[in-house]
């Protein structure tokens, strides 16, 4: 891979990689570190470029693997994750009571999603927030399409059950 190719194809997706790392780690500094390491790794594995069909998915996969390594190595316990739950901004709402209520609901949804196993959480993130196709998710997570759909279905089902608990019993 030439330097020009690196600049034209890898550098422009850095913000997307950063967002992905940030959401996995919930820590700004660690996300920055991971991106630097990931770019270095991409550069060192430039020989593989020719075989790659989807460069973006490959970069995302590297970021995810590095983030998971970091989570394991540090026995990660993110306090920011809990902090952010309270910061979720509700839609503009003139009524302060309603705004507070909406913010509370956002915080609950955030906690539900963050309590999911990492694979489910990542699939929901990639599909419902980032808008990746099933094929792209399969490439990023090194799964086949049917596994992606099954995992997405299970993840959404788990979220739905928790949402129903909130709805019916006001739990969480």
């Amino acid at each position: 891979m030439s330097l020009e190719l690196f600049h034209s194809q890898v550098v422009p997706i850095r913000p997307k990689l950063y967002r992905f790392a940030f959401r996995l780690l919930n820590n700004e500094e660690d996300a920055k570190d991971i991106i630097q390491d990931a770019l270095l790794k991409v550069w060192h594995q430039q020989d593989r470029m020719a075989e790659l069909q989807n460069l973006e998915a490959w970069c995302m996969r590297i970021v995810r693997n590095l983030a998971l390594d970091r989570l394991k190595s540090k026995k990660y316990r993110s306090t920011e994750m809990l902090d952010r739950a309270g910061e979720m901004e509700a839609a503009h709402q003139p009524d302060p009571h309603l705004a507070a209520e909406q913010q509370d609901v956002m915080g609950r949804v955030h906690r539900i999603i963050n309590a999911l196993p990492e694979k489910y959480r990542t699939i929901i993130q990639l599909r419902d927030v980032d808008g990746f196709s099933y094929q792209q998710i399969a490439d990023i997570l090194e799964l086949n399409m049917s596994e992606v759909k099954i995992n997405l279905h299970r993840a959404r089902k788990a979220v739905r059950e928790q949402l129903q608990n909130i709805q019916v019993y006001g739990l969480q």
């Binding site: 509700a90 609901v105 956002m106 955030h110």
Partner: peptide, 16 residues
């Protein structure tokens, strides 16, 4: 009603 908070959350995450 159960699905509304989820989609609003996704929207907020996108815009965050």
């Amino acid at each position: 009603r159960e699905a509304a908070p989820l989609f609003r959350y996704f929207q907020a995450e996108k815009e965050q």
